[in-house]
Amino acid sequence: MVSDHALSRPIATANAIMLLGAGGVGKTSSAAALGIAAAERGRRVVVLTVDPAKRLIETLGLTSAYSSEVVAVRGVGGRKGSLHATMLDPGHTLSLLVDEFAPDPERAAAIHRNRLFQSLVTSLSGLSEYMAAERFRELLNDPRFDLVIIDTPPAQNGVDVLDAPARLTALVDHRLYRTLLAPRHGLLRTLNAATHLAARLIGKVVGATLLSDVIEFFALFEGMDKGFRDRAEEVDDLLRSERTHLAVVSTARPEPLATAAWLTDSVTDRGIIPSAFILNRRLPAVPVPPTSAPEAIQRAVEEHNRLAHSEADLVAECELARDYPLVEIAETDEEDPLAALMEMAARLD
């Protein structure tokens, strides 16, 4: 069902809006546009982009420096409102967490020296989702802002942000790692004979050094699990709170639509109902020119309408468009990126 103002209430009242969708559907632009709409309503907004591509920063005409700094977007928000943007730096966020929860500076230093920890911080692969949730919490608690908009990484990784609190706990507290450490009592020793056999075999396959490094890694986090777990629970509550809204974004193409349907199923399974389904870059069909019009005009319109009708057929079959409040955003004509976002903002609110 088309519901033009489905996002007006979240824009005016929510504390957080999270966007999910396939790659390249305009999630980042939607996040920025929602931010502009909310800032224009007098809210103090920060947009967090998790996607390692620096698109938001570029779209907003800012420098492309990769940092976890919060940057003000000028010319948006009138007297009361404001818009800031920031990019996730997963390594930096994780390092801050370690410093916060380590019992003493020596332990923090030992963790920073650990080889696995270093590869975790530098390679980033798989780390951004853990850290997006933590950065989200930080920004929600930041007194400068009253609305946080998160642009999640594409597809699967977007849902991983929701699961991140649980995985963050797993990062520092793995029940099984305890069984890998030599058990002290006779009874436990028998119970864990199978575990030790398995560990030895896995050690052969992945390397004994890796296995002992893994054990050292978890041992370093010993005692820090409570801090991490409390934090994870707090983030989880925030993500599921009714002041957090979630919207699914797609374009009218089979692949992103399939991803959007899968993402919607994944979040509803987790008990979260999307507030809106945003269909971006829609191409409405236009009136056909009279036959007397020049051939070049006929051809341009014919090519446009062929694609427009094909898209319309696809949207007509789309269940998400029927089941959730649908917000359609027409393809913009603006060349200036900020002006294009302003136009999009007006359509979203």
């Binding site: 696995l116 590869s119 975790l120 390679s123 692969s125 798989g126 780390l127 995985r167 797993a170 990062l171 793995h174 099984l176 790692y177 890998l180 199978a194 575990t195 056999l197 398995a198 560990a199 075999l201 896995i202 052969k204 396959v205 992945v206 890796l210 296995l211 490094d213 893994v214 890694f217 978890f218």
Partner: peptide, 29 residues
């Protein structure tokens, strides 16, 4: 391929692999 499929106690195995890949996140990739 490295013969771990035949192992008994697959659950334990999965558990340990989970521990390892939690710390060494890039392993799967």
């Amino acid at each position: 391929a490295h013969g771990l499929e035949r192992m008994t106690g697959r659950l334990t195995m999965t558990g340990i692999i989970d521990v390892v890949t939690t710390a060494a996140v890039g392993l799967r990739d």
